[in-house]
Computed example of a mutant assay.
Amino acid sequence: MRKLIILGLMAATVIPGAAMAQSRGEVRDSARDLRQEQRELREAERHGTRHDVREQRRDVREARQEMREDWRDYRRSHRDVYRGGNWRAPFRYNRWEAGARLRPAYYGPRYYVSDPARYRLPRPGANLQWVRHYNDVLLVNVRTGRVMEVHRGFFW
């Protein structure tokens, strides 16, 4: 009985990791399929008939839709993983606007988005950091505390 419980616990910890890796692979495969469909469309535009071109455009549209769905699933499946840290602040939610000035407690290092590329956010410039504030993401000048850009509901 004890072995079954231990095996069950081990499986419960391994399966989410495998599911996440699969999702990332699906996004990558979908992107590769889209590029292939776009190559085939260019080839059909050069050497094919109108029917071939129409068919390839439909295939590109379907590949784009598939990639969007896989990307959405990937973000949805990883949303809870990235929430795992203690990012919730000891203060209430505020609806910040660009140009507002924050106190340092609102944009401390524990609220930085450590890998903006993972969320397809542009690299911050000098003295700028992407900061999570509940479900919003703010681009903050860490020297002055001024909010440069706001994306509401980004993590939903």
Score class of each variant (00 low, 15 high):
5 I>F: 12
6 I>P: 01
6 I>H: 11
6 I>C: 05
7 L>R: 12
9 L>D: 10
10 M>G: 08
13 T>I: 14
13 T>L: 15
15 I>Y: 15
16 P>W: 03
17 G>K: 01
18 A>E: 12
18 A>P: 00
20 M>G: 13
21 A>S: 13
22 Q>E: 13
22 Q>P: 00
24 R>N: 06
24 R>F: 07
24 R>L: 09
26 E>S: 10
27 V>F: 09
27 V>P: 11
27 V>T: 12
28 R>N: 13
30 S>Y: 05
31 A>K: 14
33 D>G: 05
34 L>Y: 06
34 L>P: 03
36 Q>P: 01
37 E>P: 00
37 E>A: 15
37 E>I: 00
39 R>V: 13
39 R>A: 15
42 R>Q: 14
44 A>N: 08
45 E>F: 11
46 R>T: 07
46 R>M: 14
47 H>V: 07
48 G>I: 12
48 G>R: 12
51 H>W: 08
52 D>K: 03
52 D>S: 10
53 V>P: 03
53 V>N: 02
55 E>L: 15
61 R>N: 14
62 E>P: 02
63 A>E: 11
63 A>L: 11
63 A>K: 06
65 Q>A: 11
65 Q>I: 03
68 R>W: 13
70 D>F: 04
71 W>G: 00
72 R>D: 12
72 R>P: 00
73 D>V: 01
75 R>P: 00
75 R>L: 14
76 R>V: 02
77 S>Q: 13
79 R>A: 15
80 D>E: 15
81 V>Q: 06
81 V>G: 02
82 Y>D: 15
85 G>V: 04
85 G>T: 08
87 W>I: 05
87 W>S: 08
88 R>W: 09
91 F>T: 10
92 R>W: 04
92 R>Y: 03
93 Y>N: 08
93 Y>Q: 06
94 N>S: 08
94 N>Y: 12
94 N>W: 08
95 R>P: 02
95 R>C: 05
96 W>P: 00
97 E>N: 07
97 E>W: 02
98 A>M: 11
98 A>T: 04
98 A>E: 15
100 A>M: 13
101 R>C: 02
103 R>S: 10
105 A>Y: 01
105 A>G: 05
106 Y>E: 11
107 Y>S: 01
107 Y>G: 01
108 G>V: 00
110 R>Y: 04
110 R>K: 14
112 Y>E: 09
113 V>Y: 04
114 S>F: 00
114 S>V: 02
118 R>E: 14
119 Y>S: 09
121 L>R: 06
121 L>M: 09
122 P>Q: 05
123 R>D: 14
126 A>K: 13
126 A>N: 10
128 L>N: 02
130 W>Q: 13
130 W>E: 11
132 R>P: 06
132 R>Y: 06
134 Y>I: 02
134 Y>A: 07
135 N>G: 07
136 D>E: 07
137 V>G: 03
139 L>Y: 04
139 L>M: 06
139 L>T: 01
139 L>I: 03
140 V>G: 03
142 V>S: 13
143 R>Y: 07
144 T>E: 13
145 G>N: 10
145 G>Y: 10
146 R>P: 01
146 R>Y: 05
148 M>T: 02
148 M>K: 09
150 V>I: 06
151 H>V: 06
151 H>R: 15
152 R>W: 10
152 R>T: 11
153 G>Y: 09
154 F>T: 03
154 F>L: 08
154 F>M: 04
155 F>M: 06
